[in-house]
């Protein structure tokens, strides 16, 4: 078994090495990927089209906004699927955990976490809202926010984190995030554009078409942040307790 599995690996490796001799020069500005009209358009016109200084954010949330919506949906699916796989409705009675020793949460750890968590959360808002002008955005902000809840669960126990953010509320927040994203898309459709054509939002926002795109992107990023926050914590809560949602690590 071990040796036969080497055959596909060697074959794929041969193919990939064969192809990599043909790639354009390393870092060549004239390579097709760097000089194509698409990437030139992104670099040259992002400011004109959307007024967002961070091209990555503009491409992510606006030019390829549909991709990003589906990506958020993928995160949502992961949360749903993990809950569906691990949750066992038929066996409600608590499982005895003989091997686990209950230890009082450590004083130093809990107090440090007490200090750190608010900072992390504020930083996550900063990362989310500042995604237009610096590296950051909905996914990064959402992961940070989720990490703050995971930190609470790690330093005390899962129940404490779950009283702050119950699993049902997680799924509601995640669904609301997608609803916000797709809702902005549908709103721009209702105002006469295509799906996710944020420029049409100028009819309801007191700004220009470009700034409408700018603001709609923020809304979209907030939606992404909601979903990612909730699902990251839901994944941790379910995986660390095998779907029982108690005790944890």
């Amino acid at each position: 078994m071990k040796n036969t599995s080497l055959i596909p690996v060697v074959l794929v490796g041969f193919l990939l090495f064969y192809a990599s001799t043909d790639f354009p020069e390393w870092g060549d500005p004239q390579s097709p990927a760097s000089s194509s009209p698409v990437s030139s358009h992104f670099i040259a016109k992002t400011g004109v089209d959307t007024e967002v200084p961070n091209m990555v954010t503009a491409v992510l949330a606006d030019y390829r906004g549909f991709d990003t919506m589906l990506e958020t949906v993928v995160v949502f699916i992961a949360g749903m699927a993990v809950l569906a796989i691990l949750r066992n409705f038929s066996r409600k009675k608590p499982v005895k955990r003989g091997h686990e020793v209950s230890v009082e949460p450590d004083l130093i750890v809990t107090n440090t976490v007490r200090l750190v968590v608010p900072v992390i959360q504020i930083f996550s808002f900063y990362v989310l809202a500042h995604g237009h002008v610096s590296p950051g955005g909905g996914f990064q902000g959402g992961v940070l926010m989720g990490a703050s809840f995971i930190l609470i669960a790690l330093s005390w126990d899962l129940e404490r984190a779950l009283t702050r953010f119950p699993i049902n509320r997680c799924m509601v927040v995640a669904a609301l995030g997608i609803l916000l994203y797709a809702g902005i898309g549908v709103l721009s459709m209702a105002l006469g554009g295509e799906f996710l054509d944020y420029a049409e939002l100028e009819k309801v926002l007191p700004v220009s078409r470009e700034m409408a795109r700018y603001h709609a992107m923020l809304g979209v990023e907030i939606g992404v942040g909601f979903t990612v926050t909730a699902i990251m914590f839901a994944l941790y809560a379910n995986l660390s307790s095998r779907g029982r949602l108690e005790g944890g690590l």
Partner: peptide, 18 residues
């Protein structure tokens, strides 16, 4: 043909939007 985000083919290069 449907272009998401209103990145129409006549004013933008093909492949900018989805």
């Amino acid at each position: 043909v449907y272009l998401f985000g209103g990145w129409t083919l006549d004013s933008f290069p093909r492949g900018v939007g989805i």
